[in-house]
Write a protein that binds this DNA or RNA. Structure first.
Length: 867
RNA sequence: GACCCUGUGGCGGAAUUGGCAGACGCAUCGGACUUAAAAUCCGAGAUCCGGAAACGGGUGUGUGGGUUCGAUUCCCACCGGGGUCACCA
């Protein structure tokens, strides 16, 4: 047996043993050894996309956190579900296939094998018997099954919609995948194009998705992002007659109370009424502007700094609040690209006195600004400007010039005024209260090969039919040519044999050639983990009722909106179908922070790669070639900066336990933090000291003699151990792993100093709490001590509350808030006794002064306020 | 531009949520062990002033104000870093 701590030898051995013994298998209801009285704990990682590059050090950060929770809960008596799988459909595998000719299935499986090897080398306690891949036909079957249910409920439909088309990727992309007119993946330019696409009616669930956020234990920032993404806004729709036409312009506004201040109207350039209402005189100018707007990139159109542009259509609309012949009723109708066709009704009433954008537009084109507000800002000059319409105001104010024959807003507050105008419109059939959402329906098809096929048939008569459930899955055809045709025609269109099918009436039909987006598989994988091999149901109801919902879900912030919103949407549909028993999938969500790295910056602020810099003195860096001084900065890991850290290397040099411990010790889980290889040695030293507590250096002695049999415990070490166990237990619950580790280091430092006084029971209990953090080392020492069973399954040590309180406590004595002395008093002393001792301790600071006030904080301090 | 998060030694960070600022780790310095070095172990360490010294006194959590007996913690304004949304009517 090795005398020294040798992770390279220990770690693979224990990993193999856990595998063989299925140490971490979770029991399902119905399993022979299932214990219904055991509480359950479902702790889940956001499963990875198995990329060709393998794991980076960011992956083990969240995975170690969940693993510590899983291991601790198991030892605390929970039946723990802690699974892992692969989100394996997606563009990179297909791009790789296009470049190399390797079938995505082949490269994906190779990547999965590599990821699995790397994760196993980290010693994660996954129940590998539940491993799944979204690409596996047995999984695809149920993804398609869910789609079929969506279709049956009218939540999936085909629509001709303007979509983002990316020439280089040869596909359409969802709005979410396009940033500033360029593809998120690959950064290629994208253009808008109308195409027939599958859409999912997520908007039908907008209100429920919004309301149910309240009950979730999620970071506020993520809830806020989802709320903003859903973008509920309350207001009213109003209809405006157009002079000389039989049409009405409908607008949506959140401020119906400002309708009296409308002085013009603006339609989006793409608004369908534009052609109809434009006068001959303005036709050319309008056409020019429309062409100009269409040619503009999204980036230019949304650039806030740009000049306001627009053109008058020549038409007038009528403000419904005023009689037709009232001059205030006549509103010129403009088109301008600051109005977006896809939001609200694509048209607005412009109130320059109450809206910043309308005010700017009115300023540029010299349109009237009828004042409607008398505000009290505390600045008389400003108040005057607002009262005259010279300055725009949207805050609370008194209404002026806001009345007609039967409506007067004077004296009303905002809510009352909104309601009054909305009510007036409604009574006359000119409008109604209206709720609008920013959320759009979800574009759900992609023109790619490597995704789930749609389980639908296009029949000869143009109708659509679902593939019967008992014929699922519709598998992808074997193909060797994956390149997108570039004609908005998916690769599957070339699979001529596969395309041919027969509908329910026995007539020839054609399969759908689009595939589902990457998000589909990740929308419900957490459910399949509960019951991964069920052939008759997506998940058995009694199994779902037992495991659901996920108790803790950890992943990166990049999924704050899309994945988490889509999964919540599908979950709610499955709830309505009776497939799941909870309205929400993930009760508690936590985002780990990104692991950053160091890089360098020269005097001009340009970043310099790590291999170009050298440390010349403590904290002083120079450029290796030019010698110019550099400053160290924190940056994202990137190939160009040469600061990428590979987990395989860290495991090779220090072991998996050290890597796990270091990532948890770096700082708070949620914070972004820089990797510092020098610091890794610190936690490695700590593990070495733990090793030395059990295995002495001397040759011929395998175990410290004091640990062979139980001996009387050293009271001080015992006390500290109880505190340490208490601290670690609480910190694990709070996901505060960095401070838990600090507490364990303190104990080991003390135990090292009092090495011969350490007892067998004490080291066993300590290894018990260290085990979730450093499972291999603790198993090895547990086994060398001859302790029963596996450290991974041994029960969590108990804390004696009596050991947490001291007999005597030291209090700080302050005079006027300044530290002047210390006293030691019995714990729980009466205030009077404490004060007496305190007065004595700081007597010299009190002489000649009058005590005005005495403050006693039990167990902490005494403060004298003197004059 | 709006909203959210964040700012503590040379570095990563801690502080029971209003009560001894700097736990723990890295780096640094000193000591022990060693022929020597590494490794290991023990110890020092915010800063300024006075003192040979143990010690005493002042200052200190981005900056400026405020609340409080007491502020890293709460409030206001500003500055720096990060994130999200970005003409959403």
């Amino acid at each position: 047996m090795s005398k020294s701590y040798d992770p390279q030898e220990i770690e693979p051995r224990w990993q193999a043993r856990w595998d063989e013994q299925q140490t971490f298998r979770a029991r399902n209801p119905g399993d022979p050894d299932f214990d219904p009285d055991q509480p359950k704990y479902y702790v889940l990682d956001m499963f990875p996309y198995p990329s060709g590059a393998g794991l980076h050090v960011g992956h083990p950060e969240g995975y170690t956190a969940t693993d510590i929770l899983a291991r601790a809960r198991r030892k605390q008596g929970f039946n723990v579900l802690h699974p892992m799988g692969w989100d394996a459909f997606g563009l990179p595998a297909e791009q790789y296939a296009i470049q190399t000719g390797t079938h995505p299935n082949v490269s994906t499986n190779a990547n999965i094998d590599n990821f699995r090897r790397q994760l196993k080398a980290l010693g994660f306690s996954y129940d590998w018997s539940r491993e799944l891949s979204t690409t596996h036909p047995r999984y695809v079957r149920w993804t398609q099954w869910i789609f079929a249910r969506l279709y049956e409920r009218g939540l999936a439909y085909l629509a001709e919609v303007p979509v983002w088309w990316c020439e280089q990727l040869g596909t359409v992309l969802a709005n979410e995948e396009v940033i500033d007119g360029r593809s998120e993946r690959g950064d290629f330019p994208c253009v808008r194009r109308p195409l027939k696409q599958w859409m999912l009616r997520i908007t039908a669930y907008a209100q429920r998705l919004l309301d149910d956020l309240d009950g979730l234990d999620w970071p506020e920032s993520v809830k806020t992002m989802q709320r903003e993404w859903i973008g509920r806004s309350e207001g009213a729709e109003a209809e405006f007659d157009v002079v000389g036409h039989e049409v009405r312009i409908r607008v949506f506004t959140t401020r119906p109370d400002t309708l009296f201040g409308a002085s013009f109207m603006v339609l989006a350039p793409e608004h369908p009424l534009v052609a109809q209402i434009t006068t001959d005189a303005q036709r050319q100018a309008v056409a020019d502007y429309q062409a100009q707007a269409a040619a503009k990139s999204e980036l230019d159109r949304t650039d806030l700094a740009k000049e306001m542009t627009g053109v008058w259509t020549g038409a007038y609309a009528l403000n419904p609040l005023y009689p037709e012949d009232d001059p205030r009723a006549r509103l010129p109708v403009w088109i301008a690209d600051y109005v977006i066709v896809t939001y609200g009704t694509g048209a607005i009433m412009a109130v320059p006195a109450g809206d910043e954008r309308d005010a700017r537009f009115a300023g540029v084109f010299g349109l009237p600004i009828p004042p409607i507000f008398a505000a009290d800002t505390g600045d008389p000059e400003r108040d005057a400007r607002i009262r005259s319409g010279a300055e725009c105001w949207s805050g609370p104010a008194d209404y002026i010039h806001s009345s007609n024959d039967d409506l007067d807003l004077a004296g009303m507050d905002l809510a009352a005024a909104k309601q009054a105008v909305t009510g007036w419109l409604e009574a006359r059939g000119r409008g109604a209260a209206k709720v609008t959402y920013r959320l759009r329906d979800w574009l759900f098809s992609r023109q790619r090969y490597w995704g789930e096929p749609f389980p639908v048939l296009h029949c000869e008569d143009g109708s659509i039919e679902l593939v019967p459930d008992d014929q699922l899955p519709v598998e992808l055809p074997a193909m060797s040519e994956f390149a997108p045709s570039g004609k908005a025609e998916p690769p599957l269109a070339k699979a001529t044999e596969w395309l041919r099918a027969t509908d329910s009436a026995g007539r020839p039909a054609r399969r759908e050639t689009n595939t589902m987006p990457n998000w589909a598989g990740s929308c419900w994988y957490y459910l399949r983990f509960m019951d991964p091999r069920n052939e008759t149901a997506l998940v058995a109801p009694e199994v779902e009722r037992y495991w659901g919902p996920v108790d803790l879900y950890i992943g990166g912030t990049e999924h704050a909106v899309l994945h988490l919103l889509y999964a919540r949407f599908w979950h709610k549909v499955l709830f309505d179908l009776g497939v799941v028993s909870t309205t929400e999938p993930f009760q508690k969500l936590y985002n780990q922070g990104m692991i950053l790295s160091f890089a360098y910056q020269d005097a001009r602020g340009a970043t310099v790669a790590v291999d170009q810099a050298e440390e010349v003195a403590d904290g002083e860096f120079r450029h290796k070639d030019s010698g110019e001084p550099l400053t160290r900065v924190v940056a994202k890991m990137s190939k160009t900066l040469k600061n990428v850290v590979n987990p395989d290397d860290v495991i090779h040099n220090f072991g998996a336990d050290t890597l796990r411990l270091y990532e948890m010790y770096m700082g708070p889980l949620a914070d972004p933090k820089p990797w510092n290889t020098k610091d890794v040695a610190g936690v490695h030293r700590f593990l070495n000291r733990v090793w030395r507590l059990v295995v002495p250096k001397e040759e011929g002695v395998d175990l410290r003699p004091n640990l062979r049999t139980e001996q009387a415990a050293d009271p001080a070490l015992e006390r500290l151990l109880h505190r340490t166990v208490h601290k670690v237990t609480g910190d694990i619950d709070k996901l505060a792993f960095n401070t838990a580790i600090a507490a364990m280091i303190v104990w080991v430092n003390e135990a090292t100093k009092a090495q011969d006084a350490l007892s067998r029971s004490q080291i066993a209990r300590f290894l018990g709490v260290l085990n979730p953090f450093a499972p291999h080392l603790t198993e090895e020492l547990w086994s060398r001590l001859g302790l029963p069973g596996d450290a991974s399954l041994a029960v969590w040590p108990e804390v004696d509350p009596a050991q947490l309180v001291d007999d005597d406590v030291e209090l700080v004595v302050q005079v006027l808030g300044k530290l002047r002395g210390r006293i030691v008093v019995p714990n729980g002393s009466a205030d009077a006794d404490v004060l007496a001792a305190a007065r004595e301790a700081v007597a010299e600071h009190l002489t000649g002064k009058t005590i005005v006030k005495e403050i006693v904080v039990p167990g902490r301090l005494v403060n004298f306020v003197v004059k």
